[in-house]
Design a protein around this nucleic acid. Structure first.
Length: 122
DNA sequence: GTCTTGACTAAGC
DNA sequence: GGCTTAGCCAAGA
């Protein structure tokens, strides 16, 4: 047997891995490309995440709109259809924009830290 | 095999 | 606040 071990070299595997990671983002939360890449085990391949989402077929249940650029900024131009769609979908989940961007300290996907910092009493 | 592009990020002006 | 530069990684020409 060829003992050649390759860590998710197949683009299909990588895409699935990225999509699966994006699906893990809970509703009402958002994550950055770099964060998704890191969680997916791709390191700094934030661009790879963007490509995977671009290749994402329509009708998919992957919440691509929960993925933002660094700083909570949208990846699309403000006059783009995707921008409005993303903004609307996030709004339905309770995520609204402040000065054209999302407050990552509040809506950012912080699996553990968030519950520690965000007290329900606030 | 080299160059360009891109749903990226961070730092600098 | 916005624009530029540099770094990064993968796909396409």
């Amino acid at each position: 047997m060829s003992g050649r071990k390759k860590p998710a070299t197949d683009p299909v595997e990588i895409n699935r891995l990225i999509w699966r990671t994006v699906e893990r983002i809970p509703a009402g939360r958002v994550a950055t490309y770099g964060q998704v890449a890191d969680i997916a085990g791709l390191g700094r391949a934030a661009r790879r995440v963007g490509r995977a989402l671009r290749e994402l077929p329509p009708g998919s249940r992957v919440p691509w709109y929960r993925v933002l650029r660094a700083g909570g900024v949208f990846a699309f131009p403000r006059s783009s259809e995707s921008y409005r769609r993303q903004r609307r979908l996030l709004g339905e989940e309770g995520v609204h924009l402040v000065n054209g961007r999302v407050d990552l300290q509040r809506y950012g996907w912080q699996q553990t830290l968030d519950e520690l910092l965000w007290s329900p009493d606030a």
